[in-house]
Each structure stands twice: as C-alpha cells, then as structure tokens.
Design a protein around this nucleic acid. Sequence first.
DNA 1: TTGCTCCTCACGTCACGTGAGGTGGC
DNA 2: TTGCTCCTCACGTCACGTGAGGTGGC
Lengths: 149, 149
Amino acid sequence: MSARRRTTTRIDVSIDRGVFMISVAAELAEMHPQTLRMYEARGLIEPQRSPKGTRLYSQADVERLRRIQEMTAELGLNLAGVERVLELELRLERTRRRAEMLERQLAEARREAEEARAEAERLHRESRAEIVKYRGGAIVPVRRGDVRR
Amino acid sequence: MSARRRTTTRIDVSIDRGVFMISVAAELAEMHPQTLRMYEARGLIEPQRSPKGTRLYSQADVERLRRIQEMTAELGLNLAGVERVLELELRLERTRRRAEMLERQLAEARREAEEARAEAERLHRESRAEIVKYRGGAIVPVRRGDVRR
DNA sequence: TTGCTCCTCACGTCACGTGAGGTGGC
DNA sequence: TTGCTCCTCACGTCACGTGAGGTGGC
C-alpha cells in the first residue's frame, strides 16, 4: 500500500448519448475510422453529430460496432449478412420475450383456475354436507310451541 | 379444343427423398452445377447419394437452394451470412411457434378459470339464497305427526 | 503549426462463382 | 461414342477494408 491515495471517478453517461468522436470510437471498437464512416454510409450505424458536424458515437453505438466487428472479422459475414443478422436477432429477441411473458401469464392463469376450482369444490362439498347431515323430518316453518315432545 | 385429349400424370414423391441428379437440381434452382458441389463442400446442403456415388437432391434440397440463391444473388449475402441467417430463421420460427402454442394455452386456461369462477359464484349465490329464503322457526328433526296445525 | 475532423478516390485482398481439364461408368 | 457423373485447379469479378490526398476549424 502506497502512502498516496489513488482517487477514481466515474461519470454516468446515458448509453444512447453520443460522446465519443470517431478516433475514440474506432479505438474502442478496434476498427479503422474510415471503416466507421463506411458503415454509416451503408446505414449500419448512425452516430449523432455535434453542431459542427463531427460524429459522436454513444456507448450503444460502440457495442454495436463490436458486434459487427465480431461478425465480419471472426465469422466472415459481409455487410449485407450483418444487416440481415442484426435484424433477425432483434426479431428473435422480441419473440423470445413475448414467449416468456406468455409463459408467466399462463402459469398465473392456471394458478387462478386451480384456485377457483378449489373454491367451487369447497362450496359444493359444504352444501352437500348440509344435506347429508340433516336426517328425517320435513323442513317447515314452525312456531315455538308447535312442536310437541 | 383439340380432338386429342392431353393426359397428365403426377408422381407423389416424399419432399425429403433424393430424386434429382445434379444437372436437374441445378436447373430447377437456376444455379451452376459446380456451385451446388461447392455448397456441399461448405456444408450448406447435403444431398443423398446413389449407390454409385451420384448426388441426389430432394425437393426440400431444391427449395433450400432457391432460398440460398435468393440470399446471395438478390440480397448479396456471402455464404457465412447465409449459414447464419438460415440458422437464425430456424430458431425464430421455432420460438414463434412456441409463442403461438402458449397463446392458445393461455386462452384455454383463462377460459377455464372463468368457468370455475362462475361455478363458484353460482354455488355461493345458491347457498346464500337458501339462508335468505328461510324465515322463522327452527330447523329441528321432527317426525310426521309431530307437527300440529 | 499540430492533429484532429470532414470528404472522395484508388488500390490490395479475399470470397465466390464459373469454366476448363481429366476420369469413369451407364 | 455421347453425355452425363465425379473431382481439382485456376481465373475473373466484386465487396470490403484501408490508405492517400486535400479541406477546414479548434
């Protein structure tokens, strides 16, 4: 342990806010700046722009760039394929989430059905119990004193 | 109308049975036979083989070839992209089907819950009706003749 | 002035499709 | 023999990445 303290700070930035100029974004994504300009021309990515026209990439942009880098460099896709795959992955993710939500709703609906069935069963048993417990005689309106023992 | 009748026949063949030799399959898919051999080497398609080693493509194979042809020629994907897209489309289709099944099951479960709730409600109302309708007198076991009027 | 930004143009590389060339069995 | 099959090898084309070259504003 050194006698001097090291102080670190971290700045919170919205993931969609454009904060990196092209040289920084390119370094973070391990790509050539010119490649980033090319991807923008192809519509693969849309960085914000500063008032002076300088591109500003967000963290989400950089992550997307890394995904593209992975697909092209490691998997060997071309840009048409990257476009298509990103689109399909989005749709798959949405569908997966929908299925998950439906699964939760289904479990809930089944639980509710089971509860309602149990309640109906209970009420049914109760009314039968009353009938069964009463043996002999008629149920008639009588006044006190009418019954002789 | 000509005096001669034209007779047509159609042979039923399983969609997965290898029936087309490479020249026919290539023509049906509008591709070069050599391209089909290349796709096989890449693992994109696996035609059956005759005992002599001749490739035999099924109807499903030809359809797959046409899909690949569409992706490469019209959309400009390379083969790495085609592979990935076919895989993703398969997964998307499966997930979509799962979501549809869950949706049907959810509707069914909700219907059942509603039914059970209605039944419970009915039983509840019935037992309350019985209590309300009976006015005066005690419910006691009596024998015929015990009640005097 | 230096080092960034913007842009366009051009070249090298690589994947892919296709054709050639040679073999073998109906 | 003809026309298919099988295979391997090689070439042309095209997409993509990168670098050069020239501009402009902190």
